[in-house]
């Protein structure tokens, strides 16, 4: 089986995987980083979004071997010293989740939005940018509020 080595949340990790192992399977099953979720498994829902070399990707639509040598950030990599990342805090403060299943992907996508669009986001931008993330509880209203608030907090 091919060997893979990558940097996940600042830690060098390695393992042997079947070529058909998806990145999300490697993260969840080999590394036990179960914060990244599998919702649809068909690239639609965005629950599995992680960052690879700083860019958001759907980890159910990337092979683990394709991430060999890459820097990967998952939802587990955001908190520092037991304190939530400002974007995570904003989701909590604004009731940006109900069941929470989509939240890891929403937060990782939100950070990608901030990286590309800055800290002062308007609602239309956030809604357009969230097209690849599906939530079945909230109606998105509070998620949009959370992303805007988190983006602002990250700039402070």
């Amino acid at each position: 089986m091919p060997a893979v080595a990558m940097n996940v949340n600042g830690n060098a990790v390695s393992g042997e995987v079947e070529p058909r192992t998806l990145l999300v399977q490697f993260l969840r099953e080999s590394l036990r980083l179960t914060g990244t979720h599998v919702g649809c498994d068909t690239s639609q829902c965005g629950a599995c979004v992680v960052h690879v070399n700083g860019k958001s990707v759907k980890s159910c639509t990337m092979l683990a071997v394709m991430a060999d040598g890459c820097d990967v950030t998952t939802i587990e990599g955001l908190a520092t010293d037991g304190s939530m990342h400002p974007m995570q805090q904003a989701f909590m403060d604004n009731h940006g989740l109900q069941c929470g299943f989509c939240t890891p992907g929403m937060v990782m996508t939100a950070l990608d939005i901030v990286n590309r669009n800055g800290n002062d986001l308007n609602e239309a931008t956030v809604r357009k940018e969230l097209e690849g993330n599906i939530c079945r509880c909230t109606g998105y209203h509070n998620i949009v509020k959370s992303v805007k608030a988190g983006a602002k907090a990250m700039g402070e």
Partner: peptide
């Protein structure tokens, strides 16, 4: 095309 994560790959 698609969504931001799809466009990144």
């Amino acid at each position: 095309i698609g969504d931001p994560a799809v466009r990144n790959r």
